[in-house]
């Protein structure tokens, strides 16, 4: 019999894409006010894998990701998704979103994104939010799954996430010794 155990805290990662890069600083300030300082921020990466968002958000779109220093309990993901949705709403113009924000968390084994959209492989985690298992860490690297969005398989994004994972593992050692 397996005994239920509290999971380890996870690393909060928030990605955002937008057409107008100048919005980022304002969006980022709101995230920092809520979650504390980021300890790694990616450069702008092209978000050109789909035209799905173009009618609403325009083109070209750019993605950036930030990892936050303060570790989070994994069960906070729905609450965090609702918060980032409220930030998105604050940047809506003429009922069109100008930014799309994707919160997620990383553990040593996986990277999970929050989404409001149900699908076959997504697990309901409460408050109208589903968890999307986006990447798994195997054989020394993050690997995608059949449903992984291609922007999370971008080489620079994977290198960024690998670096974040290394930082997270160091954070975890500090967390364990503080317990």
């Amino acid at each position: 019999m397996s005994s239920p155990r509290e999971p380890k805290p996870s690393k909060l990662l928030i990605g955002a894409f937008m057409k107008d890069k100048s919005l980022f600083q304002d969006i980022f300030s709101r995230l920092v006010d809520q979650f504390g300082p980021a300890d790694m921020i990616s450069p702008w990466l092209p978000f050109d894998y789909t035209s799905y968002y173009e009618p609403e958000m325009g083109a070209p779109l750019y993605r950036r990701a930030a990892a936050f220093k303060q570790l989070i309990a994994q069960e906070r993901l729905p609450e965090i998704k609702l918060f980032t949705n409220s930030v998105e709403s604050g940047f809506t113009e003429s009922k069109k979103r100008r930014v799309n924000i994707d919160p997620g968390y990383m553990t040593p084994e996986r990277f999970v994104l929050a989404t409001g959209k149900n699908f076959t492989h997504r697990i309901y985690i409460g408050r109208g939010v589903y968890a999307d298992l986006t990447l798994v860490y195997q054989r020394g690297a993050f690997e995608g799954l059949p449903w992984t969005y291609p922007d999370y398989l971008n080489e620079r994004m994977l290198k960024f996430l690998y670096l974040v994972r290394n930082k997270y593992r160091i954070d975890m050692k500090g967390h364990a010794s503080a317990q």
């Binding site: 300082p37 980021a38 790694m40 921020i41 990616s42 670096l163």
Partner: peptide, 14 residues
Amino acid sequence: ELLDILVCPKCKGP
């Protein structure tokens, strides 16, 4: 490689 995947957390520049 770090230069390719990180930016300054203050100004978000290179």
